[in-house]
Each structure stands twice: as structure tokens, then as C-alpha cells.
Design a protein around this nucleic acid. Structure first.
Lengths: 148, 148
DNA sequence: CGTTTCAGTTGCGTTATGCAAGTAACCACA
DNA sequence: TGTGGTTACTTGCATAACGCAACTGAAACG
């Protein structure tokens, strides 16, 4: 699991990244925020992978602590929080897309997730720049789901 | 952990990749084979992250089962095996480099791992193509460590 | 032929994950 | 204003994964 303050096994940059987000759930949460526009606990719960509430809760705390996402109260509903990626979280887009490209290539039963176009996974060439532009556009305008 | 034959949580390509290699060790092993030219059990054991023998053993079996790496007896030493990536494993290079780029950017204490040039992590632009060329060159010639 | 190297395996304690159930704060409506 | 539903959690407990240390069997070395 992504550890918090314990000493790292090494300072190889690949290892640093894996200790931060190299567990089974963190990158799925980041995928949902970056690509599927999910920004609340409830929305993140509804993904196909069926994350448990306690795990989602703990991961969100960790990701906030690591400054990969941040949260604020929903101004329109006092029960809810709004979660969104920080620039450090946005910088994981390349990782998510590379994983997606590999998965799409080697999973014989691959499907594009709901609300996400298969073209973002189909080929790697140009994909990262393309999605990054979507993200810039999103950041530049009012916050909300991006339709990729 | 990367599971084997149990049913996947979903067929989202990102999830498929995470279920295959989304644990704390698999991508470090792939990093060592792809970037650091390590090809034996003993060499893989010596990395800074100090993987345990039982975990390395199990991960190598899994990676072979998934056709991400393959192994053969060392023709020069009957005790040893030679491990190397398959094309499916080579295709994870982009994932490794994206993780490395992110880690190098956000780990204040980052270091380039032994035998690996920092330039491969320092910036993402062109990095993937560059390393891929190294890999193609390596595959084209006799198998052996690549010095990146 | 004894010693060392190599690639593991085994045993066992610790940590992480996953499921089900429960809770406090808040909102929507009568 | 109170009642029921929603949201974002927390708790308890079982199971699975991880990690350390010690051990093994086959091959190489001297």
C-alpha cells in the first residue's frame, strides 16, 4: 500500500511513485476524477470496480495528505464534499493513460469505461497531449466533468 | 495484488493493467529488467528496495504466467535462469517512464537509480520514444543489459 | 569431495483488504 | 417541526497479502 510518512524503500523515482499511488485503488480514484469527472464520495463509490467505503475513505485521506487531491465542502449541499485533483494529481494523467493503453492492447475483453471514449486508450501516439489539452481546457473554465 | 485467474473487477483497461501489475513490486522488477539490464534472480534481489526472496519468486512466476516476462536456463550456468521481458512486458516501458517522470518531479529527495541516467526521468518530452529506441536496438542485437 | 553459490521454499507473525453493519450530520418535504 | 432518505463516513471482524528469517536441493568451484 501507499505508505505515508514511513521511510521510503529507495528514492528511485519509479519507486517513489509506486509507494505513493502503487496500490490497487489510488489510480482508479484518480482515473475517475481525471477522466470521468467524479468529484464526490458517492460518485466515486459507484464505479464498476466496487470499492468498499472504508477503503475509499482511507484512500481519499491519503491522497489529500499527499497533495494529489484536495477537498472542500460542497457549497450547495452541506453533507457533501467536492474532491478534485491538484496539479500534482493532474500530473498522473500520463501514468493513467499509459496503463489504459497497455490494458486496452492486452485485455482481450477490454471495454471503454462509461463516459470515456475508447480513442484515449486505443493508441498511445498523441494520446497524452490530447488528454492534457482537455484537462487544461477544463481547468481554464468552470470546474466540472470532462467528457473524453 | 495482481491476481491470476480470478474474475476481474472490471474490464476498464486501466483496471486490467492495475490488476496485472498494480502491486508494489511487479513494476520494480520490470523496471530492473527494462532499464537496469537485470536478468537473474540474484541480480533482481540486489535492488535498493530489498525485495524478499519469496515475494520475488512469486512475482516472477506470475509475470511469466501473464506472458510479461519469460525465463530460460542460463546456458553457461545450470543453476541460473535468465529472465527477460516479452513484447507485452516491453510495452510497459511507457508506464515505467511516466511513473519515473512523476516521481522525479515530486520526490524532493529523488535520485537516479544506479546505472540509469537521470535524463530518462527528468522530462517526459521525447522520453518514451528515446527509451523505446534503446529497447529496439537491444532487441535487434544480442540480448544483454542496456545502459540508459 | 567439501564448500559456496544460486534459486528458490517453508513457517509464522504483521499488515492490508474486504464485507456488513452502524452512525452523525444534513437535506427535502409535509 | 418532525420524519424519512441521503451522504460520508466509522467500526468490527474475517480473509488475503506481505515480510522476515531460516532452511533446502541442485549445480559449480577449488
Amino acid at each position: 500500500m501507499a505508505n505515508r510518512n514511513e521511510k521510503l524503500r529507495s528514492h528511485c523515482p519509479v519507486n517513489f511513485a509506486l509507494e505513493a499511488i502503487g496500490d490497487r485503488w489510488s489510480l482508479l480514484i484518480i482515473r475517475d476524477i481525471l477522466l470521468n469527472g467524479k468529484q464526490s464520495f458517492g460518485a466515486l463509490l459507484e464505479s464498476d470496480e466496487q470499492i468498499a467505503t472504508n477503503i475509499l475513505s482511507e484512500r481519499l485521506v491519503r491522497l489529500v495528505e499527499m497533495d494529489i487531491i484536495w477537498r472542500q465542502r460542497d457549497p450547495h449541499d452541506g453533507r457533501k464534499f467536492v474532491y478534485d485533483t491538484t496539479p500534482k494529481g493532474d500530473a498522473l494523467l500520463g501514468v493513467v493513460l499509459e496503463l489504459g493503453a497497455w490494458g486496452a492492447q492486452y485485455d482481450p475483453q477490454t471495454v471503454a469505461p462509461q463516459g470515456t471514449s475508447a480513442q484515449y486508450y486505443a493508441d498511445r501516439t498523441g494520446t497524452i497531449e490530447k488528454a492534457r489539452l482537455s484537462l487544461v481546457k477544463r481547468r481554464g473554465s468552470a470546474p466540472g466533468p470532462i467528457q473524453v
